[in-house]
Design a protein around this nucleic acid. Structure first.
Length: 422
RNA sequence: GUGGGUGUAGCUCAAUUGGUUAGAGCACUGGGUUGUGGCCCCAGAGGUCGUCGGUUCGAGCCCGAUCACUCACCCCA
């Protein structure tokens, strides 16, 4: 035997047994998003590398060490997209979508790529549901988006998750806070772990995300961003919270939600579960008013979020029964002539919209019945040479175990009539 | 990128201190009814024991390397 080729590490097949979960999640997402006025946009999985280094941030982990970047045959540097926002913004700018109206709501569902060490809930090819709103800078849309995210999770049948929100301030007021925090970290340097000391220089806000106990304890006395942000940012955050309260959306303010992408400002949020081990965020996002301009477009404000579909599937597997589908009808046949007639019959049934299965191998009736049973079909049509000669067919109801002989003519209508009596 | 755990049939797992031909359950195929499913009975098929190398008279078992999976760190969805 030749050695079989394996799938790429961290890139998984979604087998027919699992695909029902994915379809359920996707249709729930489309339904809710479209209901809120979002329209689908499909962008390529590869972009120029520059788009992500400019968009996501040069010093972020994603750009620094997780991107699938490569030189193509023309010598251009490309990358498989590690997230959707930069691509959507690129497309929005390139096609002048900002010209059409004040506000634009877009969504995308598809694969993303990051070269990380795989673990539960984290893969190298993973799938996101991503939504973005362009052109609105007020707090109302921030609240609506988080409200919608809660509905989305609920509509998918997932419970026991929490919405955590925070504000990062705007680039101006955050800069002041960064300096204050940096000096706080410098004063107490000996108490913090190595990672936190490294973060002090790269991205000081991320220390709040540290899981080391001693760091968390020290940070309790740290200066809080909320005390340093400007009046406009404070008012924005206050209004977001008021709207969420009025919408009845439950949330917790969590100063640890700082996000790892450079473009976020003001509102940030995550949907968190305690049932997935360490990969506990099933969705997250925030406001990024500066990104469109940074990518060469007009100064259009924006908010967006992404959800991790693998994590949603993991949660659904924990609490719901696996969705499955069954053909309505199975055609069993005996003898070559009858098999051909059964084959043609199955095509007619399908053409009329009835999900129909059959046995193509010409095996024993017993084995065909076994297959019919396993397929979950409610009805089995049995066609032998005897029935064929008399222009008849056996119609068996697998649930009631009753069987009768009916005319072959108009068998489709007969089957529908029998089925509608149930 | 760092650390821990695990690799035996399609799946879940066995295999005495290293000892002849590596087993079971589920799933699969056929039979038990000249043409009838779930339960039961019988039979069959399915493995280079992840891979390569080493130790040994002898390795599924011990050692090393490598690959993969997995969990955690990191980071994030």
């Amino acid at each position: 035997m030749m050695e079989a080729v394996q799938a790429i590490r961290g890139m998984n097949d979604i087998l027919p047994e699992q695909v029902g979960w994915w379809q359920g999640i996707e249709s729930a997402a489309r339904e809710v998003l479209e209901n809120f006025g979002y329209r689908e946009i499909r962008t390529p999985v590869a972009e120029k590398l520059e788009l992500f280094s400019r968009g996501i941030g040069q010093s972020t982990d994603i750009v620094e060490k997780e991107m699938y970047a490569f030189e193509d045959r023309n010598g251009d540097w490309l990358a498989l997209r590690p997230e959707a926002t930069a691509s959507i913004v690129r497309s929005y700018v390139q096609h002048g979508l900002h010209a059409e109206s004040g506000c634009r709501k877009l969504y995308q569902i598809g694969p993303m790529f990051r070269h990380e060490r795989p673990q539960k809930g984290r893969y190298r090819q993973f799938h996101q549901i991503d939504a973005e709103v362009f052109g609105l800078d007020g707090p109302m849309i921030d609240a609506e988006m988080m409200h919608m995210l809660s509905l989305l999770v609920e509509r998918m049948g997932i419970s026991g998750v929490g919405l955590h929100i925070n504000t990062l301030g705007c680039p101006t007021c955050r800069q002041g806070y960064r300096e204050v925090l940096k000096s706080f970290l410098a004063e107490r340097a000996e108490g913090f772990c190595e990672d936190c000391l490294r973060r002090r220089d790269t991205n000081p806000l991320r220390v709040f995300d540290c899981k080391v106990k001693s760091c968390a304890e020290l940070l309790e006395s740290a200066p809080q961003l909320i005390d340093y942000i400007c009046d406009d940012c404070r008012a924005h955050f206050g209004a977001v919270r008021q709207f969420l309260d009025k919408l009845g959306t439950r949330y917790a303010v969590n100063p640890r939600i700082v996000r790892g992408l450079d473009y976020y400002m003001r509102t940030t949020f995550e949907v968190i579960t305690d049932r997935l081990g360490s990969q506990n965020a099933i969705g997250g996002g925030g406001r990024y008013d500066g990104l469109v301009r940074d990518l060469g477009g007009p100064a259009v404000p924006a908010v967006g979020f992404a959800m991790g579909m693998e994590r949603l599937v993991l949660l659904l597997e924990q609490e719901k029964e696996k969705p499955s589908r069954y053909p309505r009808c199975f055609i069993a046949s005996l003898g070559e002539q009858a098999r051909v007639s059964g084959f043609l019959l199955s095509q007619q049934f399908r053409a009329r919209g009835l999900e129909t299965e059959m046995d193509y191998n010409g095996r024993s009736l017993k084995s065909q019945m076994r297959r019919a049973d396993k397929s979950g079909a409610r009805y089995v049509l049995i066609l032998g040479e005897e029935e064929l000669a008399r222009r008849e067919i056996q119609l068996r109801d697998m649930v009631t175990k009753t069987q009768r002989i009916v005319p072959l003519e108009n068998i489709f209508e007969t089957l529908l009539a029998v089925d509608s009596e149930k």
